[in-house]
């Protein structure tokens, strides 16, 4: 058993051990550069509190950005696509069966045409 062997994919290759070594070296170099900087962080002081231009910190629930707010722009940009796709998911078993029979007929037609 060769634990360091390279996975050959026909047109390329992948060796995670070499990748991890390269990642580790990059990480160590980045860490050394970061460590050589000036440390101004002081734990337990005013520094650790959120600064909101002098305003009081809002309620935690008001600060957290909810899942429903993410990718709003993406779905809005593809509104035409989603306005057709989402209504297809009716939750109705009759529709599920119609899709099944539709696919059976379509595949049957394809297989007969390209026999």
């Amino acid at each position: 058993m060769d634990f360091t062997a390279t996975l050959v994919t026909g047109t390329g290759f992948w060796n995670p051990i070499i990748w991890i070594l390269a990642f580790l070296i990059t990480f160590i170099v980045a860490y050394l550069i970061w460590r050589s900087g000036v440390s101004t962080y002081q734990k337990g002081t005013e520094q650790v509190k959120p600064y909101l231009s002098g305003n009081a910190e809002p309620d935690k629930n008001a600060v957290h950005i909810r899942g429903g707010n993410l990718y709003w722009g993406f779905t809005e940009g593809l509104k035409g696509y989603y306005s057709r796709l989402i209504p297809l998911h009716t939750g109705d078993l009759n529709d599920y069966m119609l899709w099944y029979f539709g696919v059976v007929i379509a595949v049957f037609a394809l297989v007969v045409i390209f026999l």
Partner: peptide, 25 residues
């Protein structure tokens, strides 16, 4: 031919392939 179509499409629905995936969520 009919048998292979029925088998593949039926099993594709059972495995949750589009457009027979509606039951999975």
């Amino acid at each position: 031919l009919v048998a292979v179509v029925l088998m593949i499409v039926s099993l594709a629905m059972k495995s949750g392939s589009v457009p027979m995936h509606f039951w999975t969520p």
